[in-house]
């Protein structure tokens, strides 16, 4: 299950999430969205490492990031 969901419609590739992540899990890649912005990405391997701290989501000016945690039960 993905913890971090980056909405490609909203992302503008600013990179603020990249510098926000204490674990450096996010990158801005070469893939672009409809508006032509390069997109922030997180690899599957990094999804696993993600602590769902939401620092990236908080920094995102375009509210493109959602953060989820698996239920513990």
């Amino acid at each position: 299950m993905k913890k971090l969901v980056i909405d490609e419609e909203f992302c503008k590739g600013c990179g603020l999430c990249v510098i926000a992540c204490p674990l450096e899990l996010i990158t801005v890649g070469t893939k672009v969205n409809k508006q032509g912005y390069p997109l922030a990405q997180i690899s599957d391997a990094n999804q696993v490492k993600c602590t769902a701290c939401s620092a990236c989501a908080r920094m995102c000016p375009d509210a493109a990031i959602s953060v989820y945690l698996p239920k513990k039960d």
Partner: peptide
């Protein structure tokens, strides 16, 4: 999101 997940951060309504 799936029921198995807790929302930590989402775009406000």
């Amino acid at each position: 999101m799936a029921d198995s997940m807790i929302t930590v951060f989402e775009r406000p309504h």
